[in-house]
Design a protein around this nucleic acid. Structure first.
Lengths: 271, 271
DNA sequence: TCTTGACCCTCCCGTTGCGGGAGACAATAA
DNA sequence: TTATTGTCTCCCGCAACGGGAGGGTCAAGA
């Protein structure tokens, strides 16, 4: 058992690369026991093995070199570094929270795209009668032009973005198309009741609906309305307000995409 | 509404810093609509605003510049980038897992240190009679020298490290001190039954014990044993095997610390 | 028309924790 | 003695910018 190791041997022993050892020397956190003055060769003794182990442990816990320097300078016992440990823990927990938020958005986008793809491939694009379940929603009621709809979704996103669990929809309180003074309500299904100024949170009741999935840009929606309304007339059903549009696939969060592939489900509650 | 913005105006509009815009230009992911040949001034038109927004969204999701370049080159719709999104999600989930593991270790160390501090300050260091609850443990039984104990803990750490929920302990199956051929079992309390080759997983039954917390290095343990055994004799109690030592504070995960502050609870089960 | 201040340009350095490689000595083996 | 490792220092690169130097450009007021 020697008590003086060259940098290569010490690297073998500790598992730290030669480069890393030189770097730690430069940073002053793991200084060789001796350095040959003429050759500059570094030599480490056994006591440095323990120190190297400490540094590795701290690095595994994502401590910065600077922090490790401070810790090694001040502490000899774990009790001394409690504050450092807690700070590190907070930093990591913060990063976990951020990463989780991102993963949630990614999941949302992925799920949305997959279901849209499903519909595009297997959808019938015909009038159907369905039961719609009740959902908890957040909405902002607007009287004005349909083009203000986007603003409503923007506000909603800021207000309850964290709680959205499904695709955007819009409620229409007029029985007919209106160029101006339309009465409608952009909504998001949410997973939790929260109270936000100016946002209505409530449960939309279950209902039986005639539905039709419209494929294409929004200015072509009229055609699909014509189709579904002719079916309503044929059945002599009565529509109750508000009617709904569910935006199965619209301009995405990242890309606007091609309007030809937009999917919108028209839902008309009947009797 | 102009349709040509200087880099400063465009920076105001998009919220991206001038430096960042120049950087994105250099990387080729957000190229100005025109560059004045003589002055080098960059000019952006309205179409770039949307592109800037896309880039910001992707950056928020921690996509690298390189990936963003690839995405922008190949895709125009979210459906096209599903694979990228999933890859990104996996990367983030992996990081979350790693961070969580670190946080767990940190928590463990913090909790251990705090409870050790508590004992150091308020401990009685006298023989006490206590009820010990049953615990699920993982152990490796060893016949040899007490100094092999550390190896056992090492193996256990590798085998069930993820499931450890409390301080290390050791069971002693000999009624007396043995220099060689000692029969003992290093153990960790664990939170989950797992099966590992060579590791015994079982529930240690509850029992009533005489206990004494020893403060100091392990080679001084004999004194505390003398103290507690004299109490046993005084009470005329009978000790049942195995006896236990719980390592309340020993050489830490990071620092070895000062042996004078080590804390070891001796537990002798009585009739 | 001149000046002033705001704006823009390029180029270089710094960040973190190393890894890769060049060119030059040093130590060891055949 | 030579060949092969081992080691040294110095420099560049990474990712995604931020800071600053030193210099040219633009629009408005005097």
């Amino acid at each position: 058992m020697k008590n003086s190791y060259s940098i290569g041997e010490f690297s073998q022993i500790t598992g730290l690369s030669v480069k890393t050892l030189r770097f730690y020397h430069e940073k002053g956190i793991l200084v060789p026991s001796s350095v040959d003055e003429s050759t500059g060769y570094r030599f480490y003794d056994a006591s440095k093995i323990e120190k190297a182990r400490i540094i590795m442990r701290l690095r595994q816990m994502e401590f910065s070199i600077e922090d490790i320097g401070a810790v090694l300078g001040q502490c000899a016992d774990e009790a001394d570094i409690l504050s450092y440990l807690e700070r590190q823990k907070n930093i990591l927990q913060q990063r976990i929270r951020e990463d989780r938020d991102i993963v949630r958005s990614l999941d949302q986008i992925i799920a949305d795209e997959k279901s849209a793809k499903e519909i595009l491939e297997n959808g019938k694009f015909a009038v159907e009668e369905k039961n719609i379940e009740s959902i908890l929603i957040a909405g902002i009621r607007i009287k004005g032009k349909y083009s203000d709809c986007g603003k409503g979704f923007g506000q909603l996103g800021k207000a309850v973005g964290r709680y959205i669990i499904d695709k955007a929809l819009c409620l229409y309180y007029d029985g007919e198309y209106r160029e101006a003074d339309a009465d409608f309500e952009p909504c998001f299904p949410i997973r939790k009741e929260v109270s936000v100024e100016g946002v209505s949170i409530r449960t939309l009741p279950a209902c039986r609906c005639l539905t039709l999935v419209h494929r294409g840009s929004y200015d072509q929606l009229g055609r699909s309305y014509a189709k579904i309304l002719s079916e309503v007339e044929h059945r002599k059903s009565k529509i109750s307000l508000p009617t709904r549009e569910v935006y199965l696939k619209g301009p995405g969060i990242i890309f606007k995409g091609n309007p030809k592939n937009y999917l919108t489900e028209i839902q008309l509650p009947i009797g």
